[in-house]
Amino acid sequence: MTELTPENWRRVDAYFTDTLVGHDEALEHAVAEQEAAGLPAIEVAPVSGKLLNLLARIGGARRVLEIGTLGGYSTIWMARGIPDDGLVTTIEAEPVNASVARASIDRAGVGEKVEIRIGRGEDVLPTLTGPYDLVFIDADKESNALYLEWAARLGHPGTVVVVDNTVRSGDVADPAASTPQIEGVRRGLEMLGADPRFDATALQTLDRKGWDGVAIAVLTDVVEGYDDALEP
């Protein structure tokens, strides 16, 4: 059996990427532009981008909400997975990031299906009107529970919710790890496990981004009428 090492899991990731995703000029250009602008290299891996695309297509999503645009890489994947009259609303706190993303999204030919809202999620989310069919959460981890609350409010029974970066190189399950990011991830996962509005699972991933994971949930039929302490 092949030994589990970073070199070997990255080789498997490259094999999956080459075999199942392939090369895409627009997506690769988006990553290159992001790097050239000095944005952090924290976009999803190609296999994860393809997963988001497939989830949009499998669920027949027409309206997608993304929290955390960065350079637009995952935005392009999801925009390609919805119909021509669909819409991805993506929230980005940093205007520079939003500008880089806008150019890459337009260059990829999906600009008409994407609107970028600039501002912090906690400020922008209350201004949106649902329902959304797919919600992708990939922003500051400290706010995961807040973003999940808004995903429930802006979704409908059957809405798919995806939360990225849920393993954090194993720190999520390490009692000694207590950074604000880790605590935020834990609060989000605990909410997914306890809140009756969600039915969720999580998967560990090993790819070019390292050891991490993703949580996937579906909103249940108790979305409407659920009462909580969050003020709109």
Rank of each mutant, 00 (worst) to 15 (best):
R63Y: 13
A217Q: 05
I76G: 09
D199K: 02
T159I: 07
P126T: 09
F16C: 14
R11E: 13
A173V: 09
L39H: 09
D199Y: 00
M78V: 13
A229P: 04
A103L: 05
L206P: 02
A32M: 08
T129W: 11
G184H: 02
P40D: 14
P126E: 04
R187Y: 03
R102L: 03
E28Q: 07
A152R: 14
N144H: 07
V160H: 01
F198G: 06
R208P: 02
G193M: 08
A37P: 13
N165V: 01
H23R: 05
E190Q: 12
V114A: 15
L189E: 08
I182W: 00
V222C: 09
L203H: 11
T89H: 15
V135G: 11
I76E: 12
T19Y: 03
D221S: 13
L52C: 04
I116H: 11
Y132S: 08
V218P: 07
A139H: 01
P46W: 02
V88H: 08
D140M: 12
A32Y: 00
V47F: 02
G170V: 01
D106M: 07
T69K: 07
D24W: 02
I76P: 06
V114M: 13
A37C: 12
G109K: 15
G119N: 08
Q204F: 01
V88A: 06
A41Q: 09
I105A: 09
V21C: 15
D171G: 10
D228W: 10
G188L: 03
D212P: 04
I216Q: 08
D221I: 07
S48K: 10
H23S: 15
R168S: 07
G86E: 09
V222F: 12
Y226E: 06
P175A: 15
A173C: 13
R57N: 01
N8R: 14
R63I: 06
I118M: 09
